[in-house]
Design a protein around this nucleic acid. Structure first.
Lengths: 151, 151
DNA sequence: CTTAATTAAGGGTATATGCGCGTATATGTG
DNA sequence: CACATATACGCGCATATACCCTTAATTAAG
């Protein structure tokens, strides 16, 4: 018997989640493409819509995204006037991301498309399994992998 | 009662899998960083190592990656002499990706790091749940979401 | 109040991602 | 064989991702 079973490449957690992410993102992006939004962009608009104006740092944390990544992802949205980036009221270092009226409209249009994609996914994958999927993915995202204590 | 429950943004399958992918990728990439490999690159080397020389198209399909994406991802690996890109023997349009000796060595080094990351993930998330996670993610990746018949 | 430590964000660099369009080669058909 | 079709791949474009280092502003220490 082997004293220790070598971990196998085909069991890579990271590869599995990345492949799934690519597969699912392409699907959702097809639905959003006609209105000129990507999934990432829709996520940003959706979050701001729901939670109100937020700073880069705060939004990045909620989206589980690097701060600098969000800073760049936000630029196309600002260019298209979907969001406004205003200086923070109390802290002049920070920037508040505001949803513009145009952004709200675009979000609403996107929400319809998103809902269609979501329905189709749930049908294809099964409602129950889709629900399981989201639960286990949320658990993954919440897991402190580094082992260090989270302050 | 509402005649139909609106799908909720926080239940987005796509966002969930993307966030998890970012979270997990950062973790694995930290392990691979010291030897100068990213997860994507390690996946490419690993696949070629396991399956032997492959064309861009074939490898892209296996990695659930767009053909053009892989075409670009392969360039840094070629630049560092980890893989060799040779013209296809029978079909001159295709290119065969070969693992070089240097690439094999780098892969072996990466495999050690990857195994450490994988172990730590499995411990933090739980072996059983990690196994479930991979199973459901594989199911997602395999699911034909478009509804069209797959030729 | 002055200085040190902390925090918010930008810029540089590099890779990752995929669509649309174009080119070269291969294959099927008459 | 000539021609239409299919396939393998590259390039341009735009966004996505995250590292490092830096700057500006806030907050804590003295």
């Amino acid at each position: 018997m082997s004293e220790e079973s070598h971990p196998k490449a085909e069991d890579c957690n990271c590869l599995a989640v990345r492949q799934a992410a690519r597969h699912v993102t392409q699907f959702y992006d097809q639905f959003l493409a006609p209105i000129g939004l990507r999934m990432t962009q829709f996520s940003v608009l959706s979050r701001i819509k729901k939670r109100g104006p937020m700073t880069i740092n705060a939004l990045a944390a909620e989206l589980v995204m690097d701060r600098t990544t969000l800073g760049r992802n936000v630029l196309p949205l600002e260019r298209e006037k979907l969001i406004a980036i205003l200086p923070g009221k109390t802290d002049r270092r920070s920037k508040e991301l505001h949803l513009t009226e145009l952004g709200r409209e675009r979000y609403e249009a996107g929400a319809k498309r998103w809902a269609a994609a979501q329905r189709q996914f749930d049908v294809a994958f099964g409602d129950r399994r889709a629900s399981e999927l989201r639960a286990i993915l949320r658990a993954v995202t919440k897991t402190n992998l580094s082992g260090k204590a989270a302050n």
